[in-house]
């Protein structure tokens, strides 16, 4: 017997992601995705430092095996759940749902998910987030948006980090931005040097705006 299904392979994940969206309610949820070493955790630390007195924050830390990132975040006294994927190269909606059940979401304004360091796989899996944040450091090369188009086409915002290292690379900023624009006409692209806190303000303002928009949409 031949059975025609015509069913999306990711349907099981997408169904759970829809449930997560209901569960998240008025909490803004962002999913940070980028290569290992692009500066996701440093971005998270600086973002928490800047916003922890303004918003109620929580963090889900995705990592293949270790708890090192959660330990780094631990010192900020922000509720944090470490998720180890035990070899898995991405978070899924199911794992996110389990991790989020540790929080009282009605007490959280922004839930930040740091995905497993990987430019390919995490982009495929909807976690129920409001927005994917693509992080690209200049040392990775300006060809990465064209080589990994899915993430950059789905991102709500693109952060180009480690701009302090530009003089030591052949990274062509205009070429990278042009490729990102070709994939995504709307996402703002912000250049920054997170470690030395340069260019962070536009990202923080963007987050403030998103949070405001989410809480308004919750009210109505």
């Amino acid at each position: 017997m031949k059975v025609y299904m015509e069913q999306d392979i990711l349907q099981e994940n997408d169904n759970q992601a829809d449930e997560n969206r209901d569960l998240f309610g008025g909490t803004l949820v962002i999913n940070i995705i980028g290569s290992p070493g692009c500066g996701k955790t440093t971005l998270l630390e600086k973002t928490i430092e800047a916003l922890k007195d303004e918003f109620r924050l929580a963090v889900i830390e995705g990592d293949i095996y270790t708890t090192r990132d959660a330990e780094r975040i631990g010192k900020y006294n922000v509720p944090t759940v470490q998720v180890n994927t035990a070899g898995g190269c991405h978070l899924s909606a199911e794992i996110t749902s389990q991790a989020a059940s540790d929080f009282d979401l009605s007490d959280i304004d922004i839930l930040i998910i740091e995905n497993v360091g990987n430019l390919v796989c995490p982009a495929e899996f909807d976690l129920g987030e409001d927005c994917k944040v693509a992080v690209l450091s200049v040392v990775e090369g300006d060809d990465k948006p064209a080589k990994y188009p899915l993430l950059f086409s789905e991102a709500g915002v693109v952060l180009i980090t480690k701009t302090d290292l530009l003089p030591y690379t052949n990274f062509d900023m205009e070429s990278a931005k042009k490729d990102i624009r070709g994939l995504n006409a709307d996402a703002p692209i912000y250049e920054m040097d997170v470690l030395h806190e340069k260019g962070l303000e536009q990202w923080l303002d963007w987050l403030r705006e998103q949070c405001k928009a989410k809480s308004i949409s919750k009210t109505f």
């Binding site: 392979i9 190269c89 899924s92 899996f125």
Partner: peptide
């Protein structure tokens, strides 16, 4: 290696049907 997840989801869906 998200292929592992894709195959897992495929087997779940086909087995269910």
């Amino acid at each position: 290696m998200h292929e592992t997840s894709l195959v897992q989801f495929t087997l779940n869906a086909v087995e269910h049907r």
